[in-house]
Design a protein around this nucleic acid. Structure first.
Lengths: 248, 248
DNA sequence: TAGTGGTCTAGACCACAAA
DNA sequence: TTGTGGTCTAGACCACTAA
């Protein structure tokens, strides 16, 4: 079974081998092909299967381990992590992916879309001129039919003209940006706060005004390191929990 | 100037070389010996100065980069990161360290201490018998004289008998655990939520009851992978913000 | 004892930034 | 052109787990 496997990684694509391998393994974990506790191939097996060196294999596994998707035990092997102790604070995860991992059935409802003129503040974070066109998309996210979060996206319209013509109840925004506009979101910085729910948000989340929410503001950058999206997320405090691991 | 530098790392200590180098560099950054924007020695220089291979140097730098303490630019060099977009969600950071980095002057007031019997829930997370002795320490954390957070620690008393005799307004808890009991906190898992301030907490934080708080529950493990502390942190929502970076 | 991941070395070629 | 970090290889020895 040699030749076939050697060609699963493309040495001329420009994408580093360790990253190709990382994505390949990641897909098999997230798709549940490999369940929690399942042992991954050993490093030696991965070297042989994909025709790369051990350092390359380890670089791919290191990333997965940092994200909490796998754990390693010397002398035993490498295993798929149990999803209790989670990422979510390391990688950009889609709402759909996030909810599936938490065992909920996700759904999306688009509340509002429109083109607006950038305010001074918005212009600053998106690094555009005040008054420039910004596409605004407001979505309600549901888990098992119950409101979980509201996401308000502000997109630099010059980078993705006509972005509002697509149906974001069905199609992920990030997929559209990549396929239609060649924009890949590669990095983001975010601030996490606790706020009391304003009346309008509370209503749409079906909680009482003043109830505590997790409020996240995120700036997402494209592969060219240019701001593409400013995102505000309001998570219901009674339903949404962020998990992570710390080192001493 | 060769020989001296070659001995800054101890090849017989059992501590991996990359980790020794990582800690050494980390200290120089956190102590502000190297300020934000300062260029670190190049990888080649570090190899020579410490007598290690490039892979070892890079392993140390990778960790610092993951934590957000440094950033690298191909063709230019490696630099100390600006503390705006920070960790706090990767490494266990003391309140004092955390506040200093945010430009506040930290202070601590001990509100309450005592020995209690472990409830069923507490026993479960600390992996001890229900009813076993637990040391409880409640501290108010101030930044520039204003209340910022309340921290309630629950310590497995059997692991650190007499731990309450020390003054935790002056002496960090983690330092005491290490110096007096040989316990190093090496790992922790935490859950982050938004809650409405209960009356008693609100009063001590000088906010209104119901105001939104960031509520963190953390289980800290020793170097032996045994639970040592269960910690509840209540951060004022109007003053405390968590920052982090995501990858796409 | 055999097989696993953890650490480390010495080397190579590359893309990119700056002079 | 020079020097930087980014990627990759081939090999080595080790500590730990499980049979």
């Amino acid at each position: 079974m040699p030749a076939d496997h050697l060609h699963l990684l493309d040495r001329h694509s420009g994408v580093p081998l360790y990253q190709q391998l990382y994505e390949l393994l990641r897909r098999r974990i997230l798709s549940r092909e490999w369940r929690a506790g399942h042992m991954l191939p050993t490093e030696a097996q991965l070297m042989e299967q994909y025709g790369v060196s051990r350092a390359t294999v380890r670089q791919a596994l290191d990333t997965l381990a940092t994200e909490g998707l796998i754990y390693r035990q010397r002398g035993r092997g490498t295993f798929v992590a149990h999803p209790t102790v989670q990422q979510g604070l390391v990688r950009i995860v889609s709402f759909t992916e996030d909810m599936r991992q938490r065992g909920f059935e996700p759904k999306t409802r688009v509340l509002n879309t429109g083109i607006i003129a950038a305010s001074a503040d918005l212009a600053k974070v998106l690094d555009i001129e005040p008054g420039a066109e910004v596409a605004r998309i407001e979505r309600l996210r549901l888990a098992d039919g119950e409101p979980m979060s509201i996401e308000v996206s502000f997109l630099v319209h010059a980078l993705c003209p006509g972005v509002l013509q697509y149906d974001y109840a069905r199609r992920p925004l990030r997929q559209t940006l990549e396929q239609e506009y060649g924009l890949r979101i590669t990095r983001a910085t975010q601030a996490i706060r606790a706020i009391n729910a304003p009346d309008d948000i509370a209503k749409r989340l079906t909680v009482a005004p003043g109830d505590a929410l997790i409020f996240i503001e995120r700036i997402s950058l494209s592969q060219y390191n240019i701001p593409v999206e400013f995102l505000r997320i309001y998570h219901r405090g009674d339903r949404y929990v962020l998990y992570n691991e710390l080192r001493g």
